[in-house]
C-alpha cells in the first residue's frame, strides 16, 4: 500500500488521461450513435442499410482491431493519424457509437405505438414525431443502458495503452516494470482508480433503472 501512496501523483496523471479519453470519446459516441440510431429507424432504405452495416460490423469487431486498423493500416491510404490521444478518441468513439446506437434504437422501439400514432394523427412530420414525442420518452428508458455503455467505455480506454497513450493501465505497466518488487501492488493501485469510476456509475444505473421502471 505504501507504494501506491508514494506514487500517487503518477497514478493521478494516468487517471486524468483515462477520464479525458472517456469524456471526449463518450460525448462524440453519444452524438454519432444517436445519428446512427436515427438512420436505422428512418424510412429511407439506404440510410437504414448504412446504419445496420455500421452497427453490425463494429459490434462484431474487437476494439483492438479498430485501433490496429487506424494505427497501422490507415497510413496505407495516405491518412496518417497523429499517434496518441486523438487517434485513441477516434477509435473509441467509432467503436462505442455502435453500442450507443443499439441502446437508443431499442429505446425508440420500446415507446408505445399509440404515442407515435397520436403524434402523426395531429399532423406532426417524421422529424417532429421523432424529436418532440418519441425521443423524449425513449431517453428515459435509454439512460440505464447508456450508462452501462459508458462504464464499458471507461474500461475500454485501457486498450489505448497498447497504442502509445499513457493512461491508467500504461502507467501501471511502467510503474510495474520499474518496480518489480512491488509487483502486484502496483496494479492493485490501478484497479482502485478504475473501481472509483465504474462501481458508482453502476449503482447509479441500477438506481435510475428502478425509478424509470416504477414510473412506467
Amino acid at each position: 500500500m505504501g507504494f501506491i501512496a508514494e506514487n500517487l501523483s503518477t497514478y493521478v496523471d494516468g487517471f486524468l488521461v483515462t477520464l479525458r479519453l472517456t469524456a471526449v470519446s463518450g460525448l462524440l459516441a453519444l452524438v454519432w450513435g444517436t445519428v446512427i440510431a436515427a438512420f436505422r429507424v428512418s424510412p429511407l432504405r439506404p440510410l437504414r442499410a448504412f446504419g445496420t452495416v455500421w452497427t453490425e460490423t463494429l459490434r462484431n469487431t474487437p476494439l483492438t482491431l479498430v485501433f490496429f486498423g487506424m494505427v497501422f493500416v490507415a497510413p496505407q491510404f495516405g491518412i496518417i493519424p497523429p499517434l496518441g490521444f486523438w487517434t485513441a478518441v477516434i477509435c473509441l468513439a467509432t467503436y462505442t457509437s455502435a453500442f450507443v446506437a443499439e441502446a437508443v434504437r431499442s429505446g425508440i422501439n420500446g415507446v408505445n405505438v399509440g404515442q407515435a400514432e397520436a403524434a402523426r394523427a395531429i399532423g406532426l412530420t417524421f422529424g417532429q414525431t421523432l424529436g418532440n414525442v418519441i425521443l423524449p420518452q425513449a431517453i428515459r428508458s435509454v439512460i440505464p443502458p447508456l450508462i452501462n455503455v459508458l462504464i464499458a467505455l471507461t474500461k475500454n480506454t485501457s486498450v489505448a495503452a497498447g497504442f502509445a497513450v499513457v493512461e491508467l493501465v500504461a502507467t501501471g505497466r511502467r510503474l510495474g516494470v520499474g518496480n518489480a518488487a512491488a509487483g502486484a501492488w502496483v496494479l492493485v493501485g490501478v484497479a482502485i482508480f478504475y473501481l472509483v469510476l465504474t462501481i458508482p456509475l453502476g449503482i447509479l444505473a441500477a438506481r435510475i433503472e428502478r425509478r424509470v421502471a416504477f414510473a412506467r
Partner: peptide, 20 residues
C-alpha cells in the same frame, strides 16, 4: 463479482503477466 466486473480485461491480463 463487483470488483472483476468493474475492471478492464487488459488490466487483469497484466495482473497475470506482471503480478503473477
Amino acid at each position: 463479482i463487483e470488483v472483476f466486473r468493474g475492471l478492464p480485461v487488459l488490466l487483469m491480463m497484466y495482473f497475470g503477466l506482471i503480478g503473477m
